[in-house]
Design a binder for these strands. Structure first.
Lengths: 149, 149
DNA sequence: CTTTATGCAAAGTCTTTGCAATACG
DNA sequence: CGTATTGCAAAGACTTTGCATAAAG
């Protein structure tokens, strides 16, 4: 690995803890399918994928896995806090490998999600959560449309 | 009408322009169903409803209307800019009668949407839209969970 | 009258579930 | 070996569509 790759130290450090161990720590048996899906999810940095997209990637990577298993696995990963669901309008559910507070562009008409460079947005005056509730997450989605003319 | 009702001057002013006219201005024929649905949507101030909820309200209000028509109508209203789609995770699509930039609480596990009192949130440092794109809308969804203990 | 809207039922998506076969520890 | 997981196909939820009937202008 070249020195210039050290910018990804965070990702590398995560990789140090093997996927198997991470899964086991969540109480999930490290099966072939779960390992493969986790590899696809976490190997390439932050991603936001639909079930269908991840399923296709798995098939292309010669990891036979059923669609139902991808659904199950993504929900298990979500419960385990490894990924989170992305709140975007529309039919599809996106899963995001970045579980920290960050935000997204959503391109209308194209159903495409883009990351907003981190920390670009400052949110002030967050309201209090109602009684008995606490804030789990703040989602900012900036909906984009194609400029006419 | 009592004087104390004047606090709803905004809503009243909107009501001055009859629903029929508003619909016609959008190129929508003011049919019995569309008028009734618009009445339900706009008579009570800002609302966020699912198709199913609006359908039930219509039935309860003795306005026989089919579910398909509610779907069609809400999408027509959305295209016309009378309402907008609310970007919240999950199976259901919410339609919001408030088309201006404002934000929402979403109660996890209960699929409940609450308005955040207007102007409570300040967003700074909005990123530039990518080339050829413009910002259509900024959505902030604050996801709430029940506090434990 | 002509055009547009409605309602129904059928078809389409996306997602979940039940259960036998399989893999993990 | 016993238990958890997978895959399949069937079922389920939500939404859209096609077409005959009805309503609006």
């Amino acid at each position: 690995m070249s020195q210039t790759d050290m910018g990804r130290a965070g990702a590398m450090a995560e990789a140090m803890i093997s996927i198997e161990t991470r899964l086991r720590d969540c109480g999930l048996r490290p099966t072939r399918q779960r390992i493969a899906l986790a590899d696809l999810l976490f190997a390439k940095g932050d991603r936001h994928l639909t079930v269908e997209e991840l399923h296709e990637e798995a098939i292309e990577a010669d990891v036979p896995v059923s669609l139902a298993t991808v659904y199950n696995t993504l929900h298990q990963f979500t419960e385990a806090g490894l990924i989170r669901v992305l709140a975007v309008e529309g039919a599809r559910t996106y899963f995001d490998t970045n579980t920290s507070d960050h935000h997204h562009f959503f391109v209308e008409g194209r159903n495409e999600v883009l990351d907003i460079p981190v920390n670009n947005i400052a949110i002030g005056n967050l309201p209090e959560a109602p009684d008995g509730m606490e804030i789990a997450h703040v989602d900012v989605v900036i909906r984009l449309r194609e400029k006419k003319g």
